[in-house]
């Protein structure tokens, strides 16, 4: 199987995401002007500051040609993972509910945090079990997850809250400690922490690799 990792001008983590994907499958970068995702089985929208993010995080990238292709890919059930800026882009594009607001402390924050996985039926979590704890870093300026209460209630009751920050570790003031959510059918997952920076114990943790291997093993078996 082959991962496609989007690359916008201003992306920062696309090479790290590519390297994480390559640990478990084939992968290639997808330039922001590309519209043909043929041959790509799963898409990663990586972190960074797409197009500089001077307007609002992800607000410009959602209009890129590649994102139009990703929206169609997701609508067809293709697995899409948005990390950090990628999560912001997916929310801006309406592929995921809610929005990411500036951190409560109004400062950029880079820190290793513990996440709890809550059962979802996302292909990105096929190798995770309900209650798993993952050590994965966050690094962002606008990571405070927000949605109206009725949307949050709906997300919780339908099992679409994939990750929460462990108790006392919410780094940004996210509503209900939410770190990552899925769309209705589970194929689209967005999260603020960076699983691509947690794929090697030498650099701190390998817990993030499970997200990539989940999709790879699922698609390889299919």
């Amino acid at each position: 199987m082959t991962f496609g990792v989007l690359q916008f001008p201003g992306s920062c983590d696309e090479r790290d995401a590519l390297a994480a994907c390559e640990r478990v499958a084939e992968a290639r970068l997808v330039w922001h002007e590309e519209t043909d995702l043929a041959g790509i089985d799963a898409v990663v929208v990586p972190g960074g500051f797409s197009y500089g993010d001077y307007l609002r995080a992800g607000a410009i990238a959602r209009f890129s040609p590649a994102m139009e292709a990703v929206a169609a890919f997701a609508a067809g059930g293709g697995p899409v993972l948005g990390i950090c800026n990628g999560f912001q882009v997916l929310c801006e594009a309406g592929l995921l509910p809610g929005a990411l607001l500036p951190n409560e402390e109004l400062r950029f924050l880079c820190r290793q945090v513990e996440l709890g996985y809550e059962g979802t039926d996302s292909p990105w979590a096929s190798e995770l079990s309900d209650g798993d704890a993952l050590s994965i870093p966050v690094k962002h300026m606008s990571g405070r997850y927000f949605a109206p209460d009725d949307v949050l209630d709906e997300l919780e009751s339908s099992g679409r809250v994939a990750f929460r920050y462990a108790e006392g570790q919410n780094p940004n003031g996210s509503a209900r400690d939410i770190a990552g959510v899925t769309n209705e059918s589970g194929n689209v997952l967005g999260l603020m922490p960076h699983p691509e920076h947690a794929v090697d114990p030498l650099t701190g943790s390998a817990d993030g690799l499970k997200l990539f291997s989940s999709v790879a093993s699922l698609l390889a078996a299919a």
């Binding site: 880079c110 690094k139 650099t203 701190g204």
Partner: peptide, 26 residues
Amino acid sequence: AFEQYDSLVGSRTVRRPEQADAAVLM
């Protein structure tokens, strides 16, 4: 101060600030 800096991008950072007296990069 150092939590306001991304110390991880590049996925090379073996020792981050305060983990050792010097930074270590692969």
